[in-house]
Design a protein around this nucleic acid. Structure first.
Lengths: 236, 236
DNA sequence: TACTTATTTTTTGCACACAACAATTTTTTA
DNA sequence: TAAAAAATTGTTGTGTGCAAAAAATAAGTA
């Protein structure tokens, strides 16, 4: 009967992870022990262990005597992100191109298919999770225990950033996302060809694209409206 | 009375960390919950939380239903180490040169003094811990939450590696260590001058020196002995 | 009304007990 | 004697109760 408890523990762990990455649980949100333990039918002891583990992985922050919170995302972390991401992702893709095993390449292709499907019909959360899975596989390929901790932290916030800075109404943004998908294809090709130089360059391109996406969000195209009068672009 | 328990918990946490870094607890060593909880007068609940946290930081490995072990160091991890270290340390020192605040520079100088003192009269463990503290401060200076997880993992194994691959009898090794100390001085100067290019280069030099140290250990100078007869170099 | 201060309520941290699991040893059987 | 099955032992995982701390609320004073 304890078997069921173990499942619930794993279930809770997965649920928290995806909820945090998809912003279902917002940065800074309180994670109440007793409420969660009620909801998942787990006692507080294993629950707290899960929270500790997630804290180690960077999903939540633990405050002494004041419970757990979903880890914050400030302006500082956004800056840190774009400083560190090109380097770490570049290194990961370079190593991936060196080390990838054939079955891992298959995994990567499968992840990319899921991502493409999510682009066509999925929700924002599904898209972000599929993208996350794609990069997770590249991390498995790189297989360097010293790179992975930072890489995984980057992946968490990459998912949250793309959830934050995306408006499906914006044509340029949709364009960018399909370009990202094309870059994924190029990454797969570079890895399969063991072309580490190309892989590293693609990493940089890929994260520059992410930065562009954020700039589109922060600095939207000016509204096509004149002071005092509403104009409309006339068809030619 | 609960206050004392909290102290013991922090004490246990610190003790485990240093014991693992100084190889007082060897890689792969079993960490028995009940034995540790006896020794530190803590119940198993907080003890397990400490172990979970240390697992997140890379000090220990957790195996399902089979307890905790000190994290392993294999040939693979050594290779991973020297692949990742120059890059991460380079990035950390570059950012440190950009961001370091004056009081942090003071911290770094203080750490270097402790390191020099340990070189003169300290044990191997004291030397390794002082060196670790020096680099820890550079990590604080860099102040990038995406770099730090990997950096801290590197520091753990850097300490363990220098504990493993050092023989104070070997003149060349002693020479290398004092060169490392000189590099620390140069790093301080580069950071103080905000010279990020020099800082990044020094990171590479510093880790090449570590690699040399290991090569000295793995491939020692041949014994000065001829087959069938013992010769001695005659003074000129 | 604003500001302390006291009291209540909520929530977290620790200890212990028991259940589940893994490994080892003993017993049984061929 | 050897292999398989069963019992034993040691160790980990979970549930619950209680104590301590923090937060929220109420009461009293300026």
């Amino acid at each position: 009967m304890k078997d069921a408890a173990k499942n619930r523990k794993a279930e809770l762990y997965d649920w928290l992870k995806t909820a945090i990455m998809t912003l279902d649980l917002r940065p800074g949100a309180d994670l109440d022990e007793s409420r969660l333990s009620d909801e998942f039918q787990l006692s507080r002891t294993p629950l707290r262990e899960v929270l500790r583990q997630l804290a180690g992985e960077g999903y939540v922050d633990l405050r002494e005597n004041r419970g757990a919170r979903v880890s914050e995302m400030s302006h500082m972390t956004l800056r840190d992100f774009f400083l560190a991401a090109p380097m770490i992702y570049g290194a990961v893709l370079q190593l991936a191109a060196q080390n990838a095993r054939p079955e891992q390449v298959d995994d990567l292709k499968a992840a990319q298919e899921v991502f493409k499907a999510a682009l066509r019909s999925g929700s924002g959360a599904e898209r972000a999770m599929a993208n996350n899975r794609f990069h997770e596989v590249t991390g498995e390929m790189a297989d360097n225990i010293y790179l992975l901790p930072s890489f995984q932290r980057l992946l968490i916030d990459h998912a949250r950033i793309s959830m934050t800075f995306y408006r499906p109404q914006d044509a340029q943004m949709v364009e960018n996302v399909s370009e990202a998908s094309a870059q994924h294809d190029a990454i797969i090709a570079a890895i399969e060809a063991r072309d580490e130089v190309a892989a590293a360059q693609l990493a940089i391109d890929h994260w520059n694209l992410s930065r562009d996406q954020i700039e589109l969000f922060v600095m939207p195209a000016g509204l096509d409206v004149q002071l005092g009068s509403v104009t409309r672009k006339t068809p030619a």
